[in-house]
């Protein structure tokens, strides 16, 4: 009898522990190498990404170990699981003051996995490349 009770109690505890373990996936700083391995990039956001309001993020670009400044970048993105794009049209531009690319107008409409694409439109044809970054939105 007591054996059964113990089993039941243990099962209950197990379930409640499992429930407690679902931890937040906090994506604030994400690194990614470009498709043709020309660039290393870092996306750095002020807060963990969330839905509903504008997100404030910076973007850093390196080629080998050198900072790549003031090149043209086009940004796009979407949610692969849902076949839809970003709800806004964000802009990314070089900030001479901060020596970093600043992203403005970025928003997410749903929680889950999103892909952000950065098309590096460098003046040298050989330096054109694409960066695809997976981010998690809470």
């Amino acid at each position: 009898m007591y054996k059964i009770i113990t089993i039941i109690l243990l099962t209950c505890c197990g379930f409640s522990l499992m429930a407690l373990q679902g931890k937040d996936n906090i994506d604030k700083k994400i690194q990614q190498v470009s498709k043709n391995s020309i660039y290393q990039s870092t996306l750095d956001c002020k807060h963990p990404l969330s839905t509903g309001s504008f997100q404030y993020c910076n973007f850093k670009l390196h080629k080998k170990d050198n900072l790549v400044k003031n090149t043209q970048i086009f940004m796009s993105g979407g949610m692969p699981g849902h076949d839809h794009g970003l709800p806004t049209l964000p802009q990314i531009s070089w900030s001479e003051n901060e020596q970093i690319y600043v992203i403005k107008g970025l928003k997410f409409s749903m929680p889950g996995k999103w892909i952000l694409n950065f098309k590096i439109n460098a003046s040298e044809v050989a330096d054109k490349d694409m960066i695809s970054m997976a981010v998690t939105v809470n």
Binding site: H84, S109, P111
Partner: peptide, 16 residues
């Protein structure tokens, strides 16, 4: 709740 989120139960954006 993907779309009907937040206190308005709306993410305030546009979906098909």
């Amino acid at each position: 709740a993907n779309c009907h989120s937040g206190p308005l139960f709306s993410n305030k954006t546009f979906h098909d």
